[in-house]
Amino acid sequence: MSAPPTPDWLADFQHRFGAVLREPLDRATGTLTARVVRYAPDAVREIRDAANASAAARLAVYNRQYWFRLFSVLQTAYPLTTHLLGAWRFNAYAQAFLNAHPPRTWTLDDVPEGFDDALPALLGDDPARALLTDAARLDAHWRVLFHAPDVTPFRPGAAEAARLPDSRLVLSPRVRLWCERHALLALRPQLRADRETPHAAPPAHAAPAWFALLAEPHGIRAVPLEPREGALLTLLARHPVRDALAQLEAETPAAERAALPAQTQRWLAQSVARGFWVGLADTPPNPTLTE
């Protein structure tokens, strides 16, 4: 079979139709409404009026479907954030995000990518900005861990042990280090089906709480860490081991430094045993891996 050419008009037709789909929905009336008057006349003229609906009204079905599907994808990917904001406010931020970052790949899994980075600017001076930013980051960790591939944990031999002081440990894609100021992890399993009513803010911790989030065969598990342990693991993921230990020591009050060598030895060994690392690297780290 010879390859037929793609018709000249197809790209233009799909450009016009795509613009209709992405036309933002109007929130002014308290419901999400298609703004059919903003559809390009050329796009509307391509459609026949139906017996019960105008051409523009029929196009609006696709316009609404586009947004509602993507809102649903983002709400599912960011459940904590959705519940703390309530679906109505969440959708406003989602629409702003998607206007700036329309989906570009065939997988819906990519649609939420970057919403957590964009949210702080979208929130402006919202008094709950810190809490909502943390919630979005935790949701993002959950999503990334769910999709993390299987990896072989790092089990250092003699050669790696010798390289260790001057190398950086590479955090496993199946692990995220998480430090929270509010009890967001505890809230996550308590979320109700109702997304419309904003959930009350969770209580603040007396001091920041550290966890390792682990992708396991049947779900994601949060392992509590001691605060200095969390700080150590974060430093180890960002700097060569020698520099990380030096920085931790510098940050530790003098009265507690005597115990530090034994503690760091234990935490490091424990992290290796738990499969937190996948190897050694001499390159700079990926800053998104740790808080």
């Binding site: 479907q65 586009y66 989906p103 570009r104």
Partner: peptide, 10 residues
């Protein structure tokens, strides 16, 4: 389902 580098997921 998409055009011009965008995916419409419909």
């Amino acid at each position: 389902t998409g055009a011009h580098g965008l995916s419409h997921h419909d």
